[in-house]
């Protein structure tokens, strides 16, 4: 597969004033502005939202405090293991 991967963005939406932003999923977009547009088009089709946040998924640092025993995955510094979160040098080739 020769196509460059489109960055992944996590989307958080505040539906009504006074409420916190809530994670509702992700979108693919090349930059932050288009990620906001995509989030608005995909996740607010059924009602106005007051505020949308988008962040590159790779920028999130995650932990899973509920799991203290061996179910805790060591690579859990990312929210999940997505191909775009890890850069591979070009010389290594397609992976």
């Amino acid at each position: 597969m020769s196509e460059t991967l489109m960055p992944l963005w996590e989307v958080f939406i505040r539906n009504r004033s006074g409420m916190p932003h809530k994670h509702c999923g992700s979108v693919h977009a090349a930059d932050a502005t288009m990620a906001l547009h995509a989030a608005r088009d995909v996740y607010t089709r059924r009602g106005e939202s007051v505020s949308i946040w988008v962040t590159p998924s790779s920028a999130i640092t995650a932990s899973d405090p509920g799991d203290k025993d061996h179910l805790f995955e060591p690579t859990a510094s990312k929210p999940y293991r997505h191909p775009t979160f890890y850069t591979v040098p070009d010389e290594v080739g397609h992976m």
Binding site: M6, H28, A29, H37, A38, V42, R45
Partner: peptide, 11 residues
């Protein structure tokens, strides 16, 4: 060209 844009165009 993308699913996101498909949705946007429909909007």
């Amino acid at each position: 060209p993308t699913l996101e844009e498909d949705i946007a165009l429909s909007n």
